[in-house]
Amino acid sequence: MDISRRAFLKTTAVGTAATCGVGTASATAASRYDSYSGVVRTRDHFDISFWGDVYRTDGHSRTDYETTGTIPGMTDDSEPSELVVFVHGWKHDAVEARAKFRKVTEALRGQDVSAPVVGYSWDSEGETLQWWDFVEIADLNADKLGTFVRDYQAASPGTDVRVIAHSLGAKTVVECLEFFMDRGYDTSIRSVDLLGGAVDDDEVATGGEYGQAIADHCEHFRNYYKTDDETLETDYRLAEWDTAVGHQGIEGEAPHNYEEYDVTYVTGHDDYPKPEKGCIPDVVGNWQ
């Protein structure tokens, strides 16, 4: 068995926290889903060998996932009109991911969005020099996210699914759309919103790697970028030798369903999904 460098670096506290339950809306508030409802979880599905190779851990397949808490429309008998799935970015352990799910839910509730919110929690905590490993892990999570979306739509066909992704979570989401396309699925998501997306700016264009998948597998695709995002301007550019779509917007012709917005007013890279500091009011304002 490979020796896991990333697992060795994890603290006992983080490992314990990853097994804790998630917050669930109380019975009196269930109709409004005041808290995020549940989590789609793929933590510990991937690891990095001592030699730096990403591998799938024992007992996990290309498409499996777990859920915790309540997934309205899937693990209960409700059928909400909409479900919001939020995919966090890099360097989030399980505790930090749950904190971000709470923040984005708070921001959505502040805009009178009552739809249930579900977090997507994936292996993203690591060292800076492991960036390329986590890009690969974000990529490999796409089939799992896509399988969840298909399972969810089969269980609750009357529910529109909206996906919001922050930072490196954007890689998982655009790869998820490509997962639908490559397998010939007719699956479509109501809307995709990238917040400070860590994806190359030309890859989302028509003729780019994800352009056709964007055009075919979501009704509305919106990119929110920040021209003074220091994380994307320095770290991403240094790592990828390219410009992130979350920094300067798209390079090239946009797919027919693509829109983008300059939200340079956002305080910092980590703040896009947060109340007051972020751009969730614009995200919700642009929903159709």
Rank of each mutant, 00 (worst) to 15 (best):
G197T: 00
R56M: 13
R56N: 06
E82V: 07
E106H: 10
D193E: 04
S124Q: 06
G38H: 08
C20M: 03
D64W: 15
A99N: 08
T67L: 15
M181L: 11
Y225I: 08
E219T: 06
D112I: 12
T42L: 13
G110A: 01
S156Y: 03
W51Y: 09
D34A: 13
A170I: 00
R150L: 06
I250C: 02
G23K: 10
S191R: 00
A107R: 02
D151S: 02
P157S: 06
G278C: 01
F8G: 13
T16M: 12
Q153E: 01
I71W: 08
G38C: 11
F101S: 05
V174L: 03
V204Y: 09
T42I: 12
Y185G: 05
V14G: 08
V266D: 13
G207L: 06
Q130M: 09
F221K: 04
V54C: 05
S167V: 04
V22S: 02
G169M: 08
T70S: 12
D186T: 07
D193Q: 05
Q111Y: 02
G285T: 01
R102S: 13
T243K: 10
N286W: 14
K91H: 00
A17Q: 03
A170H: 04
D271C: 09
F8N: 13
D235A: 02
W241L: 09
E209N: 08
D228C: 04
Y225M: 06
Q288V: 04
G110N: 08
A99C: 10
H92V: 02
H247Q: 08
K10W: 03
E125K: 15
T70A: 13
R102K: 05
G126C: 13
D34T: 14
T231H: 03
W122A: 09
T12N: 12
S35E: 08
G23R: 12
Y225T: 03
S124F: 15
T67P: 05
G110E: 00
Y258V: 07
V163N: 00
D76V: 11
F179S: 14
D202F: 11
V174Q: 01
D44K: 15
A155I: 14
P255G: 06
S81C: 08
V204W: 12
W241P: 00
